[in-house]
Simulated scan of single mutants.
Amino acid sequence: MEVNWPERFYCRSFVRKIAQWREVSFFRAAHPIPPGAKVLEIGCGDGGGAAIFARSFAPSLYHGLDVDPAMVTIAAGRRKGPAWDNRLFVLGDAEHLPYPDAAFDAVVNFGIIHHLPDWRRGVAEVARVLRPGGVFYFEEIYPPLYANPLFRRILAHPRENRFHGPEFRAALADEGLSLRPGYHESSLFILGVAIKTARP
């Protein structure tokens, strides 16, 4: 589902970009991928995360996908110079990714799965489009952060079928996404890396 204006404002803020720099630094330290990888970002927003990730990882192809046409337009408008020639921003739904199986070496998720009404399908789609050995870089937040009495009145999120740490980690395992050691988790969020292995 599309984010509403308060969350859109935050996602385009300098504070959010600092957080994404820190997250990408964690991703790179936890499990770097070689230059030239094919990368998909689900929920790319204004393209700021794409610029940060691409600067650190140097992919040969970077697709940013978002369900919000306005955000895709803004992201596509960020193109500046040849460094952006390998980046494409497309309109699409993370529950129904418009790509064939095993199309990407890595998928990036800066807190989008919790926006999906059928979040398990979103995890399954991530696993589907990753090649064997591919990497899922993710940041996710849990209901105590976005569905508390204050924020649930301000932010637009699905109310049913939400997840906490155990459910999210189990969904990764069910889809053959093996969580790497060293991930960070609290009652509010998780930041980690998972590798696609064979489904159990």
Rank of each mutant, 00 (worst) to 15 (best):
V3C: 06
V3S: 13
N4M: 02
C11P: 09
K17F: 03
Q20C: 00
Q20P: 00
R28G: 11
H31G: 14
I33Y: 03
I33L: 15
P34S: 12
P34T: 10
P34R: 09
A37L: 10
A37N: 07
L40V: 00
I42G: 01
G45L: 06
G49H: 08
G49P: 13
A51S: 12
S56F: 15
F57V: 09
F57L: 11
F57R: 11
A58T: 06
S60T: 02
L61W: 04
L61S: 12
Y62G: 10
H63Y: 15
H63M: 14
D66M: 13
V67Q: 08
V67I: 15
V67W: 03
P69S: 01
A70L: 03
A70D: 11
M71G: 00
T73G: 13
I74M: 06
A75N: 14
G77I: 06
R78K: 15
R78H: 11
R79F: 11
P82W: 03
P82R: 14
W84Q: 01
D85L: 10
L88I: 05
F89K: 07
G92A: 03
D93L: 05
E95M: 12
Y99P: 03
Y99F: 15
P100F: 01
F104H: 05
F104D: 00
D105N: 13
V107E: 03
V107R: 03
V108Y: 01
N109P: 02
N109S: 12
N109K: 09
F110S: 04
I112N: 12
I113A: 02
I113W: 02
I113Q: 01
H114E: 14
H115T: 11
L116I: 02
P117H: 07
P117Y: 10
D118L: 03
W119L: 10
W119G: 10
G122T: 09
V123G: 01
V123E: 03
E125Y: 02
E125V: 00
R128M: 06
V129C: 01
V129R: 04
L130S: 04
P132M: 05
V135I: 04
V135D: 01
E139V: 15
E140Q: 14
Y142S: 04
P144V: 14
F151N: 12
R153V: 10
R153S: 15
L155Y: 07
A156F: 08
P158G: 11
P166C: 06
F168A: 06
F168E: 01
A170C: 00
L172M: 11
A173I: 00
D174M: 11
D174H: 09
L177C: 05
S178Q: 03
G182R: 04
H184I: 13
S187Q: 05
A194M: 05
K196M: 07
K196S: 09
T197V: 15
T197G: 14
R199H: 09
P200E: 15
